[in-house]
Nucleic acid binder design. Sequence first.
DNA 1: GCGCTAGTTTATCGATCGATAAATAAGCGG
DNA 2: CCGCTTATTTATCGATCGATAAACTAGCGC
Lengths: 221, 221
Amino acid sequence: MTGEKVETTTDRRQRLSPGERERLIVEGAITFFAEAGFSGHTRELAQRLGVTQPLLYRYFPTKQLLIERVYEELFVGRWKPEWGTLITDRSLPLRERLIEFYTAYANDALTYEWIRIYMFAALAGEDLNRRYIDLLEGQLLAPLCAEIRAAAGAPTMAESPLTTRELESAWHIHATVYYYFVRKFIYESKVEANFEAFIADVVDRTLDGALSAGLQPDGAS
Amino acid sequence: MTGEKVETTTDRRQRLSPGERERLIVEGAITFFAEAGFSGHTRELAQRLGVTQPLLYRYFPTKQLLIERVYEELFVGRWKPEWGTLITDRSLPLRERLIEFYTAYANDALTYEWIRIYMFAALAGEDLNRRYIDLLEGQLLAPLCAEIRAAAGAPTMAESPLTTRELESAWHIHATVYYYFVRKFIYESKVEANFEAFIADVVDRTLDGALSAGLQPDGAS
DNA sequence: GCGCTAGTTTATCGATCGATAAATAAGCGG
DNA sequence: CCGCTTATTTATCGATCGATAAACTAGCGC
């Protein structure tokens, strides 16, 4: 037992093309930083990758540049434009549009790695999150408010501008879905196992609440 | 300019009673760790307190013990039993109870320090959050479900047991309020400035949605 | 005022981290 | 099969962290 080498997979050193190795490092870094946070050590990352720590520095001159690459890989271009068009596609009932969107969004965006690294970045003071929220409000929440108005027969945005309180009503549904995954992946707490049923319930309650009484475009108290 | 001492407040060393000093350290640690996270360095904490770093180790033998003291200070006994009785007090309309509760809860619990340290602890893998969620579901969310059932004329919990899907409907409101403060204190993003109006809107949408269609105690699809 | 207690500081250790330089060897071209 | 390129490893540095030991001094009691 003592003095023996660990030899997890192959002890032999393996030469990969720079492209392959870089991809392995980036993907390993995403998984590793999602678990350990950005205060995770480069030596542990290297160990999980089965390489030595200085090798990382051949591909990424500093740890910070590797982190920024992780940001880029996870967040840049992750928003699919068709999601925006799906929300405004009035050939489908709004209920079906919302269920379809959040099912796709949960699968593609709200993953273990995404949720945790997003939160780590926010706590570290990155402006990444604010930029993402701007994107979300512009591409999803504001259009959603317009669709709810249309469904309720309320004035259009041109007739009555979007208020911050109305925007919060769109956050009402988005926050609930998002927090479902925070509880699942960050708190690692038990959540409703049937996500399909969960999202349908959330959409139904949201639409019923928003259409029956919650709509106050002029911000009247 | 060069070579001079910084001398922020008083350069003179000040002797405090152990009780006072300990309280200052704990309060300073809460503020500091809320900003920097638990990977924040003891030297920077000491500098903010205006003392030297080894002094911390006279009051807390290890950094970890100081962190656990911060947990204790922030989370243990923070839940007020009267919040649970407020929710079930049927002499008030459920709408008023919810608004009153979340106003008090936001003031007392959902502070900058609480939200951020709660999230840091969760990402670090502490079981603190799961225990808090158990408390929340037992003392707040499950009773709230019972109140919504009563308001809708649905069967009692004794007649039809609480389902996980129904519990998610209570998370619907709680997640929205919680995420409002996540956006405010963690993302440091712009949120609706009028919290009073925000919470009233959330409660109204939630009750309308839950009472009109969202109530399915038997979990029927 | 004087001395002792103990709160506080100075000095420093060992471990560990990010990062660098030099040695090693895998694997393709000839 | 041999030699060169370069991907990878070994060895190590300087900085910094948590933590410890010893020196210092503020301030209460007599």
